[in-house]
């Protein structure tokens, strides 16, 4: 009940922001798509695993949109295609990396994403290298929109996707499969003695995370109408992990809360300190981890508890 209320409040707040500050419409769209990718990171963190390479799947979603746009004019179809390609790639990589945990899991993901980044930069004839690919604005549900109408439509599309994904992930986390994720973190061997394949449980979560990142990437591509290899670069993966920790892994709202705060701050800070942005993120990350804080979702939870206790 409290969860539904908080989600409702969040949606209203975002709508108000988007209504009164047109530039925030764009930022909110980007924040929602970041939140989608981070939702996947959160699933993996539930299993005690961290991927330093999930920007790979964001890039997969985004580049799929860019590659297919000349042949496909419908945004929804592009979105689905982005998710499908990211999931397929996730299956290929996931079958391998889910054999590993901890260091190997994190670093193998980083390695694969860096290979993808190099390829996106080097295969110029295919990807146009660092210049990236421009995406011609597609139609949405058959409507050829532009200007504020397109911004609104895309924002609402991201919002619907986020609500849908958040609901599904919340349900998943309450299921035996989602519960087994936490068991991987605390006592994986016991899971095997329960007849449950830890690897299969982790692979499911990995596929979900790749799909979510793919959707996030596709929305980003539709919003920016331009994709570059930077989408796959390690700094982007690092940002996803950062937002996951900032938002907190205790609740599906965490990633979106984290993403909104992150994108709002970035609009100002990244411009002011372009060469120190990662450093600032690094310091904040250290503070959150070393103080064992539970992120923004945890903060909100504590606040609600305190208010509830008083009333």
């Amino acid at each position: 009940m409290r969860g539904t209320l908080t989600v409702g409040a969040g949606v209203v707040l975002l709508l108000l922001l988007a209504l009164f500050q047109p530039w925030l419409r764009f930022v909110s769209t980007i924040a929602l798509s970041t939140g989608l990718a981070v939702l996947g990171i959160m699933l993996l963190l539930r299993a005690g695993q961290v991927s330093f390479g999930h920007a790979l799947y964001v890039a997969a979603g985004a580049y799929t949109v860019a590659f297919l746009r000349p042949y496909l004019g419908e945004a929804l179809l592009l979105l689905l295609a982005g998710a499908a390609v990211a999931t397929g790639l996730g299956l290929l990589v996931g079958l391998f990396v889910t054999r590993y945990r901890d260091i190997f899991f994190g670093m193998l993901n980083l390695a694969f994403s860096m290979v993808a980044w190099s390829l996106l930069e080097k295969l110029y004839s295919l990807t146009r290298g660092t210049d990236g690919i421009r995406v011609v604005r597609p139609s949405l549900l058959g409507l050829g929109l532009d200007g504020p109408a397109w911004d609104w439509a895309l924002f609402l599309l991201a919002l619907v996707a986020a609500l849908l994904a958040g609901g599904l992930v919340a349900r998943y986390l309450g299921s035996p499969a989602g519960s087994a994720l936490g068991a991987i973190k605390t006592r994986e061997t016991r899971l095997e003695f329960a007849g449950i394949s830890a690897r299969r449980v982790l692979l499911q979560a990995y596929l979900a995370s790749a799909a979510l990142a793919g959707v996030g990437g596709a929305i980003t591509a539709l919003a920016t109408l331009h994709v570059t290899p930077l989408l796959a670069y390690w700094t982007h993966s690092g940002e996803l992990v950062f937002v996951a920790i900032l938002g907190g892994t205790g609740h599906v709202l965490g990633p979106f809360l984290g993403a909104v705060v992150f994108e709002l701050v970035r609009v100002h800070a990244a411009a002011a300190f372009p060469d120190a942005w990662q450093m600032i993120l690094g310091f904040v990350l250290l503070v959150i981890i070393l103080s064992a804080a539970r992120g923004l979702a945890g903060l909100l939870d504590d606040l609600a508890r305190r208010l509830g206790g008083r009333g």
């Binding site: 260091i103 973190k185 992990v241 450093m279 690094g282 310091f283 981890i289």
Partner: peptide, 21 residues
Amino acid sequence: HVLQLLVTFALFMILEDVQKL
């Protein structure tokens, strides 16, 4: 383990920028 990884990753983010600065 996951926290140890995150801590050295955070350090990595910091040092990459120290270098640029």
